[in-house]
Design a protein around this nucleic acid. Structure first.
Lengths: 335, 335
DNA sequence: TTGAAAGCGCTAACAG
DNA sequence: CTGTTAGCGCTTTCAA
């Protein structure tokens, strides 16, 4: 990489002259500016990012900590964050916590040494289960802002972007009730997440409001053979005529299971889930889904962070919690 | 963030003393080392990464450029890269080219300003179609090593990690032929990728070797309604009794289509694809898959880059191309 | 055993 | 209009 020094030497001017010329300072003569710019272009000069960061004490880099990049929803949010960040001239350093508190702490610590200007993250499963927040507060006290999305730590004072989880399943259940379904099951592989609990509560609320409806709940653990459990569950509970899945996989499996049992979907049973459109469209019939608008979430979370970074006196800025409403995309697996 | 300067001031010693003490230099007295370390621990001192990078002229950061993070295979490789890089004390800056040549060039340029020590990337679709390589060579000439995986630019001199695409589909077809299938279809949404073409060639070779077998090829474009096309294709070609999918989705859809047509899988028709295990296990019966060992690929590609970075005189190091063999995971959608 | 000073690449206040 | 200088945080050589 060419440096200012080298350009200066070759042009027989001082380093600062070169710097100013390249930055269009009106202190420098037209002719000089031209000479400098030409040589810089010739050598493909790019200001060294590291030196700039050191000088300006900001890196224009965001640390993003994601619990699981194989989760389609989280990957989609990451995608949106990257796009939005790039748009504003920021890079992202990605760490994957792998649902582990320890890795989350490590990643945070590792990047809090001047590598990034702030963080965007979704809290890991283990962190949520242990209700650990000290590591977040430590970072914030060091002056690095955090913005959380989807899985947030309620007790930490920071910007947040979440989904209307309770309402989503409440409305979903209402919809199935509207279809005259009588035996509705709720399936979840994410019972240990607080948003998983919210989704269950929304479902139960809707069921409770209708005395003639029976609700069922199937909780699946990480290590379970999901397919086996769901097949057994639907075999043992033949009266079930509606399924709401709280996660991205169990709805798909429930749909396929129903079909394999010879049921007609949606005539005999309705199925819906928080599945990505891509996957939902692999199903025949296509699965009705609750869309979480990962794109909007990613854009929103990035804007919140950048806004805070650009405010000199970020102290003055109130912390906000944005709720991105889900929407029901009716497809062919419901009436 | 606390700096050496602040520690030095508080301890009434010089900056260099503090630095040396923290780096366990034996130049410094035992007592002083202790005092320094205690204060550093108290203030949670961490050497500023940016300053270190500037000083040492290396960032311990890898630029990773991925065409599409929603592709499960690519996401999995990214996951593995992140893990491996972290293991060796490297961070990754992720850019998503979104299959666009322009974005790929931009990302490369943007990070080639001292932000990263080297690149890991899979070539974007557009780049492959236009057979563009100048931007890669430019980066390499700047002294930044590139390691490519999966989708590589053959004409660029650099380390590469690929999959045995030809053999994978050749063997897959052989397997279906061994099942006495007579009418075997090959489906692909990735015909524009060179690895997509290789997979087709492998399939065709196997078909050509068996005069009594009929091969069919269905190519799907990005914007197609995959499900509709596949349903039509299987309806129009009722004699098909075997399907090999070159991508992650068409196999799943073909399987579901067959079921929806009342066919028994695998009795009446066998289906297999390059689908991730997660998705394959949503199917009933579970889909037989060709595993690409994303983990191994990610680990291999990272090791290659780090090895090159650690070699002072990287010139001496020969460029190598590693082939990670796929393996067939037989499941319930084949005999 | 400790400290002063230079330098990584850059910007900017100040001097000429 | 151009150059000198200081400084961002750190390591390291050389001097004390």
């Amino acid at each position: 990489m060419v440096t200012l020094k080298q350009l200066a030497k070759e042009l027989n001017v001082s380093i600062s002259t070169v710097s100013k010329a390249l930055n269009n300072s009106d202190e420098i003569g037209e002719e000089t500016v031209k000479r400098v710019k030409e040589l810089a272009a010739l050598y493909n000069y790019k200001p060294n990012k590291v030196a700039l960061s050191l000088k300006q004490n900001k890196t224009k880099t965001i640390g993003v900590i994601i619990p699981n990049i194989l989760n389609h929803f989280l990957a989609k949010v990451l995608f949106a964050i990257e796009r939005e960040a790039t748009e504003y001239g920021y890079n992202i350093i990605t760490c994957i916590s792998n649902e582990s508190l320890e890795k989350e702490i490590k990643s945070l610590q590792l990047l809090a040494n001047g590598s990034v200007d702030g963080f965007i993250l979704a809290v890991s499963k283990e962190t949520q289960m242990k209700n650990e927040t000290a590591h977040f507060n430590k970072i914030i006290n060091q002056g690095l802002p955090i913005v959380m999305f989807d899985r947030v730590a309620n007790d930490v004072l920071c910007d947040k972007v979440i989904v209307d989880d309770f309402d989503a399943t409440y409305n979903a259940a209402k919809m199935l009730i509207g279809e005259k379904r009588k035996h509705i099951a709720f399936m979840s592989t994410i019972d240990d997440l607080s948003l998983g609990k919210l989704r269950e509560k929304g479902f139960l609320k809707a069921i409770d409001e209708e005395p003639r409806i029976t609700g069922y709940v199937l909780k699946l653990a990480e290590k379970d053979d999901e397919q086996k459990k769901i097949m057994k569950f639907l075999k043992d509970n033949k009266m079930i005529d509606g399924v709401i899945s709280a996660d991205s996989s169990s709805g798909v499996i429930a749909l396929n299971t129903a079909l394999s049992y010879g049921l007609k979907v949606p005539k005999d049973i309705s199925v819906m889930g928080f599945t990505s459109l891509t996957i939902a469209n692999h199903c025949i019939p296509r699965l009705t889904t609750i869309r979480q608008h990962a794109n909007d979430i990613g854009a929103c979370v990035t804007k919140l962070l950048l806004n805070r970074l650009q405010h000199k006196s970020s102290e003055e800025l109130e912390f906000s919690t944005k709720i991105i409403k889900t929407s029901l995309v009716k497809s062919d697996s419901t009436l």
